[in-house]
Write a protein that binds this DNA or RNA. Structure first.
Length: 423
RNA sequence: GUGGCUGUAGCUCAGCUGGUUAGAGCGUCGCACUGUGGAUGCGAAGGCCGCGGGUUCGAAUCCCGUCAGCCACCCCA
């Protein structure tokens, strides 16, 4: 056993029938993005390390300890993409897209973070997300949020909650930060160890503490609300009005504070209890300074990322196991000659895009029918010596258990009449 | 990265305070049943008890290490 190679820690193989659920979600995602006018972007799986250091933020956990970084043979430092926003912005800059007005892009694909694996947390995971650039308007925030919410809603996830918040901008955030510092600093000794670290580094994250001993101080902390500048306040109000206008239920939660440096103003999360501690299925917000910080023009942007693995888990919890519908035709050949006859018909069926299955072993009819059943085939096309003699195959509807006779002619003709019979 | 729980057949799990050849259900395959499925009955295959070391006359069982999964923290999708 020890010499067997297994998938690296925190990664997983996605096999049938699970992969079918992925395909279903992915096609839903593509269709939804299309409805909102978003085009797909695909970027390299690895990028220059510098892109993430500048884009995500030097002091974030992602950059500090979670990146898969390596030197290539030309001694360049490369990093496996730990998130999509920085690469997408890089691509937009590289291809001069931002000079051409607002842009709407979406992506689906893997990200890599070196973390300790746990349910809903992997070293390779997959995200669907969008980036909308060029609008300062809160309607763009609402658009992006509604796209995420529409996916959740259309999949029938009942217990999902949308939480929104505003974390201000370059003008008012430092003021609020200062206020928080002044609130917590006198009580540092009473705080949990983790909280003490955060007082200096990122006071905003203190609001997110789960430690019981921090709770009283968190509860009495000043609210951002009072510190928002006029611009941010108005932006948040417009967003709330827009969400109400398009019937999207939300709660304002001051504790929603994103961990990546580039967020400004709007931040939001969609949570579900089905996930335990990793409750966030989707997270995003506005990042007006990111494009400029990556060397581009001063272009505002909003977006989100949704965890595919987590989303599928929530989906599985919400839906009861659905029976796979029957589909396609199982060719049942009894004898060598029948096998040749059916082989040709199966090939023609597949050319007509009708799923066709065949087992090549010499088995009894009963065994063949069991296989057909297990394959969830809708029909069985049976040919044995009797059928060859009479020139008529038996087409059995495995659902209604009724038989029809079908003249054996040229494979293409048989396939054509099967297509008709099955539709 | 920190703390804790768990690793026995393809899957879900039994296996008492260490004691002969490690069990069950599901699944797979075969037969009853040359030719009309999901059932039933009978049978078979499938295990270095995650891996490595130690204690012991003797280890799936106790100890240490390691790998992996899970839970919480941390972080985030």
């Amino acid at each position: 056993m020890s010499q067997k190679i297994s998938a690296p820690r925190g990664t997983q193989d996605i096999l049938p029938p699970e992969s079918a659920r992925w395909q279903a979600l992915e096609s839903r995602v593509h269709a939804l993005a299309r409805c909102f006018g978003y085009g797909e972007v695909r970027t390299p799986v690895f990028e220059a390390t510098e892109l993430f250091v500048r884009g995500v933020g030097e002091t974030t956990d992602i950059v500090e300890k979670e990146m898969y970084t390596f030197a290539d043979k030309g001694e360049r430092s490369m990093t496996l993409r730990p998130e999509w926003t920085a690469p997408v912005v890089r691509a937009m800059l590289e291809h001069q897209m931002l000079a051409q007005g607002p842009q709407r892009l979406y992506y689906v694909g893997p990200i890599f973070r070196y973390e300790r694996p746990q349910k809903g947390r992997y070293r390779q995971s997959h995200q669907f997300g969008v980036e909308c650039t060029g609008y300062v308007d809160a309607e763009a925030d609402a658009e992006v949020i509604s796209l995420a919410w529409e996916l959740v809603r259309s999949c029938g996830i009942g217990d999902a909650v949308l939480k929104i918040n505003s974390i201000g901008d370059a003008v008012c955030r430092p003021r609020y930060r200062q206020a928080l510092l002044e609130h917590f600093a006198p009580n540092v000794a009473a705080l949990s160890e983790d909280a003490q670290r955060r007082v200096e580094r990122n006071p905003l994250r203190l609001l997110d503490s789960k430690e019981e001993r921090d709770a009283p101080f968190v509860a009495s902390a000043p609210a951002f609300d009072a510190y928002l500048c006029d611009g941010c306040r108005e932006h948040f109000a417009t967003l709330r009005a827009a969400l109400s206008l398009i019937d999207i239920p939300y709660v304002v939660d001051p504790r929603v504070v994103r961990g990546l440096d580039y967020y400004t103003r709007t931040v939001f999360e969609i949570e579900s209890r089905a996930l335990g501690a990793q409750s966030a299925v989707c997270g995003g917000g506005r990042y007006d300074g990111l494009v400029a910080s990556l060397g581009g023009p001063d272009v505002p942007a909003v977006g989100f990322a949704l965890g595919i693995e987590r989303f599928l888990m929530v989906l599985a919890a919400a839906q009861s196991a659905v029976q796979v519908p029957r589909e396609g035709i199982q060719a049942v050949a009894l004898g060598t000659q029948a096998r040749a006859t059916l082989l040709a018909i199966v090939a023609e069926l597949r050319r007509s895009m009708v799923p066709a299955f065949m087992d090549y072993e010499e088995r009894k009819l009963l065994a063949h029918l069991k296989i057909a059943d297990r394959n969830r085939a809708r029909f069985a096309l049976i040919v044995g010596s009797e059928e060859l003699a009479s020139g008529e195959a038996i087409l059995r509807d495995l659902e209604s258990r009724t038989d029809t006779r079908l003249p054996l002619a040229q494979p293409r003709v048989v396939a054509a009449s099967l297509v008709e019979a099955c539709s």
